[in-house]
Design a protein around this nucleic acid. Structure first.
Lengths: 110, 110
DNA sequence: TTTGTACATTGCAATATTACGATGAATGTT
DNA sequence: AACATTCATCGTAATATTGCAATGTACAAA
């Protein structure tokens, strides 16, 4: 049905899924990478950088902002975006907590 | 159009997006967590554990398998799934490489 | 005020995802 | 052989995502 039954799962599971979904599109990965590289927090550049329409970029930026990964501030007539370092750290920890769970002993059950 | 323009992006960006998409649903997060906890690699249990139909679970398992995160082997009449440790490490490194890029100096541009 | 620039939002069309019943394939049990 | 169990796949309905043109909003310059 295309509708996710979020109520069946706990907060951690839903949070991990929500955050992952933000990274689940190459354009959004590219945006984040660009913001990491040019610490300068540009926006309009993205339209030139990636080959997507302005409306599409704006939409992706909003999704990243909704999850809290990036934040923007008005800078005259343009808008300046950058990574939200606190949230970034939060997500990093969340992912580490998941990925460090593999008992690295030789577990070849399959 | 619901169609992702993958050709606009490089391999790393597409890979990160593909892997993230695998984790972009709480049921798949729950499946992975369960496989991490019960190293025993069960399958039928998941249908009881999560509140989803058997066909739905099977579909999620296939998506995780397609990305290489899990692997399954036939065990009599049932199928045994588990984490693919090599791929797991690969993904962990890929994510670390992304998340370690934040220059942790006081960068409050916005 | 008019014009231009930079983004956001809206409204659509195309496609993808999620969920599940029904059915199929494979194996084990009686 | 006949049946049950376990899982995969197919078909379908409901919903979500992606992309963009068009339009709206806010500000700055002429």
């Amino acid at each position: 049905m295309g509708v996710t039954k979020k109520n069946l799962f706990d907060n951690v599971q839903n949070e991990l899924a929500t955050v992952s979904k933000a990274f689940a599109h190459p354009a959004r990965v590219a945006i984040v990478q660009h913001l990491l590289k040019t610490n300068a927090c540009i926006n309009g550049d993205l339209v030139a950088e990636l080959g997507l329409a302005q409306a599409t970029i704006s939409q992706h930026l909003r999704e990243l902002k909704d999850v809290g990964i990036i934040q923007g501030s008005i800078e005259g007539t343009s808008v300046s975006y950058c990574i939200n370092p606190l949230r970034w750290e939060e997500i990093r920890n969340m992912l580490n907590q998941l990925f460090d769970q593999l008992p690295s002993s030789g577990d070849n059950c399959c």
